[in-house]
Nucleic acid binder design. Sequence first.
DNA 1: CCCTGATTCGC
DNA 2: GCGAATCAGG
Length: 168
Amino acid sequence: MGWTDERVELLKKLWQDGLSASQIAKQLGGVTRNAVIGKVHRLGLSGRAAPSKPARTVFKAPRPARPAPAAPSAPRRIAEPVAAMAPTPSPVRFVDEEPGMATVLTLGAHMCKWPIGDPALESFTFCGRRTGHEGPYCMEHSQVAYQPAQAKKKGSPAELARSLRRYI
DNA sequence: CCCTGATTCGC
DNA sequence: GCGAATCAGG
């Protein structure tokens, strides 16, 4: 199928309406999204009103220089923005008795990362007790976290914990 | 792995 | 001019 006037008009309209190339291709039929994109470019209407996206400047923060060859066996943990900007978490304090005393700022490497409360609230904390040798959670929470049945339920503590793992 | 647009290049 | 392949990103 070639680009008849009607099809080109339709393409223009749909593209201006903000449909994606693949959606347009589907609607036109007989063309792939690549064909649509190619045509869009040839027509010179590649730019579109951005519905979302605050027109990000294409700029990448340079990688922070490597600290220095640390201990070979030290677990490699990439610093998240939050952790990176936070003041150095002063001496790690485990919370052996009362769970829920650790915040994202005070949570240390070997402190239980089990979420306590609602992450949206100020009162949100992490358990903070000692973890085992490997796991991210203390003994008690490891048991809760690694129960398959419970872990699958949406909104369960285990689910929440897992979803937060990558930020810790 | 799903998707997005951008670019290249043989046709 | 066309669009598949590829790239770069979300």
